[in-house]
Structure formats: structure tokens, C-alpha cells
Design a protein around this nucleic acid. Structure first.
Lengths: 330, 330
DNA sequence: TCCTATTGTGCACACGAGTGCAGATGACGC
DNA sequence: GCGTCATCTGCACTCGTGTGCACAATAGGA
């Protein structure tokens, strides 16, 4: 497996100069005479020379790698975040080390890897890691950015959408549109942010004197929504449902419409959370709480640009917004 | 930005042994006496020592990084591939370097990066790179795996779904179900694999004496589908449409149903390609050509495991399959 | 007791690059 | 012609790790 890459020494030989000259040619700011530079560039071109970034960052102890840790990469909202984040990183000349923590893979091992690669920072997307791992990061003075995850033990940068406000918005909207038998549905893989959304919803509803039924279960967003729809409708006369994720909501919506033959929004109203692309399609036209990816990404960017020594530890809050479509009564 | 990580020398000091002993403790296969191993592990634990993978792979010149190069990361079929690929890599103790080549980013610069990181292999997902770049890879003896991209200049590993067969399948199916005024729709960012699908479709239709209208344009899959639906229907009496991508097909479908008020499948039939999750939802129930991600991934796996010296250069063909749902007449 | 076999450890070098410092080279002025 | 300065280049050290080789230590046998 040992491929022979071209080294700066080989280029130096060919160009008839010293290795230092080669190094300086490729180091912005360092000085070389135009003639030497010319010779070096020519030789490098001919031999297909490329700097070895491993060696470079070993020496300068500066890595341009940023790790993104996530599970369920193919869920639209996660995929959208990864897309936007990696684009933002690329614009800043940083590279993305993607760690898929899905399924049975060992999270501890993944984190070890992050540390072994001496990455500049780790971005942990919602739903992924255990508390112990985050502590491990901190212990190794690894810069850590959490998205939509609470973490009590300080010194981590946290970006959080305003989940409670989102839940409250959903509740107010449904009540205003005349729904009275409310329920909230979330996945079995119960993340803190889903819990906060549910709390916000229940809170606001109870302030108006309504009680809220809770449903929890299923495997994966869409399937959870399907199961919830079947079971909730069987047992009760729920007429307004808040799903803590658009994918749950879409599962719920489709099952209501196509399996149970219910009319949405007249017989039952549905509100989701995230505003993924599919929610806006006319085949769904889901009323939902928008969580802007761009705001999350720019928060990450500003953290990366801030001074790493002053670890803020205070949370950036991303605002949410109600998007009214056609799964709630006009 | 210079963080001080713990080095093996520091651990050795603390444990009162030589640096070699530390190295051997963490190298499987190397021998150390149990007592020394114990001491080293203890010291390492206390100090939070982690191997520096950069230094290690510099020395052994073996990288455990595999780069994935793709654009439009958030499109479901791309996201699904990235998810599955990164999971497969993780199972093999390899890491994923994700390069987002979307938008205006400079592909040449991206490829340079790949080469600078001395990755074990590059996986290029459909639609991404120009021919020159691939040649550049080859010149640097970089192992390159192309997915759904043709490349004449040999020595690359190619994985290709059987696009033509897929197109033919779609055509036969539509003709069998009684559609006669056929059209094929593809995106403006016209990838080779989309072109092959269209060719297969047109071929099969013409063999049965039918002519096929071609439509090409739009920006992004879903939007292309929407535009196509509006324009095609305006100008002609097309009644059977093959979209070279599920996302195009879904845009087409939704526009037919909700904007033009057409009944699918009785007035117009639609067939897609890929079989993304959303295609199977009852809100769409799209008839489509399935392209199994699992087959693609295991082909990549087998290439990675094969001997790198015998660069096969011969293409792996991934079979396709018709999935009949409700956007074509029964 | 002495020799040999065995076992474990440490020294030193290598990987590929950046950079401080000294020294070479050339130009220029007196 | 000689001294001074500016300009460039090369030597040698450094980063953190793996590993061949030589050597120390210990045990075992004659």
C-alpha cells in the first residue's frame, strides 16, 4: 500500500536547488528569487509534486480539519445541515472530516479518532453523542460545538434553536385555528431538543386551559409518524397534532390521508418542525416551524473565527418562525 | 492556535520508561512486558494521551482517509449514498473526508487538497468533476473510484448503474400500459448517466415505432420537473413522461396534479429513476427504476479491498429494477 | 561457575515539511 | 581596490511517531 509520492527533496534535486528553496516557493510570504521560483515550479509541475499536508500540519501543529459528527445522514434536515456546513468550511479553506455515528458504531471510538486527527474543532449535530464523550473532548482541550444539544458541564459552545418558542408558536397557532383536542408526537430516540419542543407546546396549551396528549415511539421519523397516526386516532378524538419533526409530521399526514381517509386540515390539523424542502411541496403543504439552517451555519462560522482561548460557553439561540401552509385550517 | 497535545515522550517520562515502550504499547503486534504496558497505560490515561495520527501516517505513509467528492449533498439520493458509504468506511476503520464541490467552488483546488492529504482513495459521486481533474488524479497515482460517470482514459475504477437498461425498462413499461406520446425529461446540468438513461428510453421506444420528445432545462431536480411539466403540457399532448431522476419526477408529478389539475396516471403517466424514499410515500407513489445504493456501496468496498497494484479499470455494473406504483396505469 | 538462550528495552534513524541563522554572492559607493 | 550592505540560499534542527538493531538482564543448563 506504500505509494511513492513525490517529495520536496526530489523536486529540489530536479530543479538543482536546495529543499528549502522548494519549501519557500510554496510558502506564501517566504522569499525566493524569481529565477529559482520558476525552476522549482517547472520541476514540480513535471513531477506532479503536491505538498504533504500531514507533514506540514505535524510541524506547524495546525490542522485544517474540522470534524462533523452525526447520525442519520440521509434525513433531509441533517443532510441540509451537513451540506451547508461543509460548504461554509470549504469557503474558509477548512476540510470536513465526516463521522457517521449511526447504528451500532462505537461512539467512543469515533471520538478517539477525532482526537487522534488533531482536528481544529468538532461539530456535533443533534441526537448524536453521550455526555461522557463530550466530557472526554473537553478533557483533551478539544474545541467542541454542539448543535441542538444541551450540556450542563460548561465550556462548550452551544447553538440551539429556540425549541420552546417553536412549540409555543405551534400551540398558539392551533388553538387560534380552533383545534381543541391536542397531541404532541415525538420519536422514540427522544432527543433533548424534541423534548423541549414538546414542553413548549404543552406549556402554552395548558396556559389556555387545554390538556395535551403525549405520544412517543417508533423507529425513525417517518415511521414514528405513521404509527402515531394509527394509534392515536384509534384511541381518541385528537384533532390537532404537533410533530416535533417534519419527517414525523409527513408520516402522520400521509397516514391520515391515505390510510385512514381523514381530511387534513378540516378533520385533523398537523404542524411540523424544521421546514425541510419536502414540507413545502404541494403534495404535503405542511404548516411548520422553520428552523433556519443558514442561521445555524453562520453561528458556527462566528464561533470558529472567534478566539479559541476565550471559550465562551454561552449559547447562541437561533430564532424560529411559523410557516403557515395547508395542514391547518385557514 | 497552537494547542499543546500530550506526546508519547511525555507519557514515557511519567511512566519512567522509554518512548519506544510507549509506542509499542499502542502498536498491536509489538511486544512489551505486562508490567511496562500497565505503567504506560496508566500514565497515558492520566495525561489524556492520544496517538497523533498525522505523525503516524507520515511515517508509515499509510492513510486511513478516503475522500468523497460530491455536489448537492442534500439531494436525497446523494445523501443516501454518502450515508451508506461513510458507514461502510467506518466499519473498515477508514475515515471520510467530505469534499463539497457544490456551487462556485473551485474543483481543481479541491482535488489538490485530496492529493495533499494523501488519501487512500477518492470516491467521486456522479455529476461532479471535469475530465481534466480525473486525469490529474491518475497522474499522481491517486486511486480513484467513479460512480456513475464515464471516463474514457483508462485505469480508473468505475461503478455504473445500468442506465440504458433502466431507460429501456421504463419505455417498455409505459408502452405496455398504453402510453403513446412519450417524452423524456432531464436537468440542465446534464450528467452522462442521465443522458444514458434518456438514450435507453428513446432507443426502446423507437424500436416500437414511437418518437420521443426531449426536454432539457431547469435548475435543480425538483424545479426542472416543475418547469418541464408546465412547458411540455402547454405545447403538446404528451401522455407518458420518463424523468431521469426521482426528484425531477416528483416536481413533474406535483405540478401536474396541483397546478395543472391533471389526473395521474389516467391522463398522464410518470416514471422516475433512483427510488428515493419519498418516491415510495403514498403522497407520491411514484413508479420508478430502482438503483440499489447497497450494491453501489458493496462494489466500492470490494474495490477498496482489492489489490491496488492491479488497477482493474473495468466497470462494475449495478443492475436496476422496475418498481411499479401508482403513477402509471395498472 | 560459566556459557548460552531468551526476553525485553533503548538508541537512533526515518518520514516530509517549515524556518532561524549563518554564510555566500553580488552590487554599489568611496 | 576595498569595505559595506542587501539579497538570497543552504544547513541543520524540529514536529511525533514506528521500528531495526544492538545490548542488558535474567534464567536455565552443563
Amino acid at each position: 500500500m506504500k505509494r511513492n509520492f513525490v517529495t520536496s527533496a526530489q523536486v529540489a534535486d530536479r530543479a538543482g536547488v536546495s529543499r528549502s528553496a522548494v519549501s519557500r516557493t510554496f510558502t506564501p510570504g517566504a522569499y525566493v528569487s524569481p529565477e529559482v521560483r520558476e525552476k522549482v515550479l517547472l520541476a514540480a509541475e513535471e513531477m506532479g509534486y503536491r505538498i504533504n499536508r500531514l507533514a506540514k500540519s505535524l510541524l506547524t501543529s495546525e490542522s485544517s480539519l474540522v470534524a462533523i459528527l452525526a447520525s442519520k445522514l440521509s434525513e433531509p434536515f441533517i443532510a441540509a445541515q451537513i451540506d451547508a456546513l461543509s460548504a461554509m468550511l470549504a469557503d474558509r479553506e477548512l476540510q470536513t472530516l465526516l463521522l457517521n455515528s449511526g447504528a451500532r458504531r462505537d461512539m467512543a471510538a469515533m471520538m478517539n479518532l477525532v482526537l487522534e486527527y488533531r482536528v481544529k474543532a468538532v461539530i456535533i449535530l443533534s441526537g448524536a453523542p453521550s455526555e461522557k464523550l463530550v466530557e472526554q473532548c473537553l478533557k483533551s482541550r478539544q474545541r467542541t460545538i454542539l448543535i441542538n444539544r444541551v450540556q450542563e458541564s460548561g465550556n462548550v459552545d452551544i447553538i440551539q434553536t429556540d425549541d420552546r418558542a417553536g412549540g409555543r408558536l405551534a400551540a398558539c397557532h392551533m388553538i387560534e385555528r380552533g383545534y381543541r383536542n391536542l397531541a404532541v408526537v415525538r420519536e422514540a430516540s427522544d432527543t433533548p431538543s424534541q423534548r423541549r419542543r414538546a414542553q413548549g407546546f404543552a406549556e402554552a396549551a395548558e396556559e389556555k386551559g387545554l390538556t395535551v396528549r403525549h405520544w412517543l415511539g417508533g423507529e425513525g421519523g417517518y415511521e414514528s409518524g405513521r404509527n402515531a397516526a394509527r394509534e392515536l386516532r384509534m384511541r381518541s378524538a385528537v384533532d390537532g397534532v404537533f410533530c416535533t419533526t417534519d419527517r414525523i409530521a409527513l408520516g402522520f399526514l400521509n397516514t391520515c390521508r391515505f390510510d385512514l381517509g381523514l381530511d387534513v386540515p378540516s378533520e385533523i390539523g398537523i404542524v411540523g418542525f424544521d421546514d425541510i424542502e419536502e414540507a413545502g411541496w404541494p403534495s404535503h403543504a405542511l404548516t411548520t416551524i422553520r428552523q433556519p439552517v443558514s442561521a445555524i451555519v453562520s453561528a458556527v462560522a462566528s464561533i470558529l473565527e472567534s478566539d479559541p482561548s476565550e471559550i465562551s460557553g454561552h449559547a447562541h439561540v437561533v430564532p424560529v418562525e411559523l410557516v403557515t401552509r395547508q395542514t391547518t385550517r385557514p
